Amino acid sequence: MRITFALLALLLSLPVAAAQLNLELGERTRHWQTAELLAHPQARDIDVPADVAYKRPMHYRAVPLAVLLEGVQPGEHLQAIALDGFAAEMPAAPLLANGPAQAWLAVEDSAKPWPALGKDKATAGPFYLVWTNPKASAIRPEQWPFQIATIRRLAAVEQRFPALLPEASLASDDPVRQGFALYQQNCMACHRLNGAGDAQFGPDLNRPYNPTEYFQPAFLRKYIRDPQSLRQWSQAKMPGFAESVLSEKELDALLAYLAHMSKRKG
């Protein structure tokens, strides 16, 4: 155990190495090296007043993400895959927009590494999707994936993972359908459901049991709002979802979707 911790400490103390960003955009694949992105003609210095990962103002060298997504159309769907298996599902339209919110790929310079995300943790690099003016377009925390290794174009979630779909007969304005959209935005980056999804980070939310089956309703809401208030565990990675991120009405819809899917484990 001492050797393991010593090795971890050594690895964390080593300089940040240059990295490669993989873009898999259908028939077009491109690999960008750190140095290439830092020297990109449209790279610039940006300030992020309320950084999601670091929870403080940050300054980055970054490239507008849209210029790297050549050929991608607003109606298409992308996925950012992190080094640890976090897989963020992202509709392309906000990433391609010039405003009011704008998406940037922040690039970590190995000569000037970013701060660690916490004790015994790495930085948010090598590549981090950050936003300027995010509140103007209601950008959520889950739309700030960090430690990105690959961005790829995929079919929409509904096509790739039919096991996630609620009952087809539900009305278009049923809260369960809104809950499904919120599940994709807030939960799918870390969890699978019915074995469906690309994430390799958190447990399945329906098999063998759905959290609505083993949590009392009040405690499940408390857990989603602040996991550490219910289970204090130093290794826990699930973030809390404050009302500023997930309103009470949205949380109701998300829980309605989970409860609905507890009866759809086929």
Rank of each mutant, 00 (worst) to 15 (best):
E167L: 12
H77Y: 13
S110I: 01
P134D: 06
D109S: 09
N194L: 13
Q73L: 04
A82N: 09
K112F: 00
P239Y: 02
L38F: 00
Y60F: 13
Y209A: 15
A116E: 12
L205Y: 06
P49Q: 03
M90F: 07
E142V: 00
S234W: 02
V157W: 04
S110L: 02
V16W: 01
L105I: 09
G118K: 13
R61D: 02
P217Y: 15
Y257H: 09
A138T: 07
G240L: 11
M58F: 10
L205N: 08
K55L: 05
I81K: 15
Q216C: 00
Q184A: 10
P166C: 11
R264G: 00
V48N: 01
Y183V: 09
P145S: 06
K121E: 14
F215I: 12
P126K: 02
A66S: 09
A35N: 10
L154Y: 01
I81N: 14
E248N: 10
R152Q: 14
G85L: 11
D109I: 09
P208K: 06
A9L: 09
A92N: 05
D198P: 01
P126Y: 03
G75R: 07
I151P: 14
M238G: 11
D120G: 02
K121I: 00
A242Y: 14
Y257K: 11
L7Y: 02
G75M: 04
G266W: 12
L11V: 03
A80R: 07
P113Y: 02
I151D: 08
N210G: 08
V67S: 14
G195L: 10
S110F: 00
A53E: 08
D84R: 14
L254M: 13
Q79F: 09
V48K: 04
L65Q: 05
L68R: 12
I148F: 08
D109F: 01
D198A: 12
Q42S: 12
V63R: 03
Q73R: 15
A218P: 08
A97K: 12
P239S: 03
R56Y: 13
Q33I: 01
N206H: 11
E24F: 04
Q178Y: 11
I3C: 05
W104N: 01
A124Q: 15
